[in-house]
């Protein structure tokens, strides 16, 4: 019994990491139909910048805030320099562009920072919390809390604010959105900045658990992408649920079946879900215009 609870804690921790990355995908996707494969690099930047600023003597909260702002700037730059100029390019070209951006950012991080692994101190210490024979680290609660907070924030943003609705309108029909007076260019800038900021925040929260180095972005983006697709791309609820589900799947497989094939089981479940629900669990069915 306490083993089951331990597996659930582990799955929730890992799942919250995936969910935070997956949530970052949603805004850009909602505004532009682009899946930003460089999202993992913003997570890396969040971790790396915080580590180096903290080492240089900056207090942790300030270092983290700086990392989030810097990453947001990177997101805006990515949009201005690489995505906007290629507006009319086909989807596969946009995939290549964001993958190119991810390679570029990684290469730059390697030069600017270093190739070593780094860690941040846990926010509330390392004393495990014991619940019915199972344990969980306080930092896990920070990550889970972060995922839920970002989710609520996004949900309010998209459903309650005019700007959020403008983002959705832009995704739906860019020209119509412009016609009703929405500054779509500003919306795109905002979306990339926000997505990158969420990614960087994720990086700050997870670094005490997962450690950070210049090349952690790819694996995180891959899992986050899979989680977002599982839940249904573009839907914050789907991102949160997809992430947690993926994390639980992995920990349950590692706990009860085989740790070697835990990632395999996760991907088999994703494939199976997509076969039954081709738009993910919460996705909407798009209509092809002829």
């Amino acid at each position: 019994m306490d083993a089951l609870l331990q597996f659930i804690f582990s799955g929730m921790t890992v799942g919250a990491v995936y969910a935070l990355v997956a949530l970052g995908f949603t805004i850009i996707y909602n505004a532009s139909d682009v899946v930003n494969f460089a999202q993992g690099e913003f997570v890396m930047l969040g971790g790396m910048i915080t580590v180096f600023a903290h080492q240089a003597g900056m207090p942790l909260p300030l270092a983290a805030a700086m990392a989030v702002v810097a990453a947001a700037g990177g997101g805006v730059a990515l949009n201005r320099l690489a995505i906007e100029p290629a507006r009319s390019a086909p989807v596969v070209s946009l995939i290549i562009i964001t993958i190119g951006a991810s390679i570029l950012i990684r290469g730059a991080a390697r030069l600017i920072f270093d190739k070593q692994l780094h860690r941040l101190p846990s926010f509330s210490g390392d004393t495990p919390i014991r619940i019915m024979g199972a344990t969980i680290l306080p930092q896990s609660l920070w990550v889970m809390g972060g995922a839920v907070a970002v989710f609520i924030g996004l949900w309010l943003f998209f459903s309650r604010t005019l700007t959020g609705k403008a983002v959705l309108a832009t995704a739906n029909n860019r020209i119509a959105a412009q016609l009703v007076g929405i500054n779509t260019r500003w919306i795109m800038t905002l979306s990339f900045g926000l997505s990158a900021a969420i990614g960087a925040l994720a990086g700050v929260l997870v670094t005490p658990i997962t450690l950070v180095s210049y090349d952690v972005g790819v694996a995180l983006a891959l899992k986050g992408f899979a989680a977002a697709m599982l839940g249904g791309m573009g839907n914050p609820r789907g991102a949160l649920l997809g992430g947690i589900l993926l994390g639980l799947l992995e920990s349950m497989t590692a706990g009860y079946l085989s740790s070697q094939y835990k990632d395999a089981v996760a991907f088999i479940v994703i494939l199976a879900v997509l076969f039954v629900m081709p738009q993910g669990i919460f996705g909407k069915k798009p209509v092809e215009r002829v």
């Binding site: 690489a82 290629a86 009319s88 086909p90 070209s93 562009i97 190119g100 570029l104 290469g107």
Partner: peptide, 20 residues
Amino acid sequence: AEYEQLVLGAVMIIVMIFMP
């Protein structure tokens, strides 16, 4: 070698922007 990734990423982006 230090700049390999940087150049590769830039080439991918530039080609796709100017020659989609």
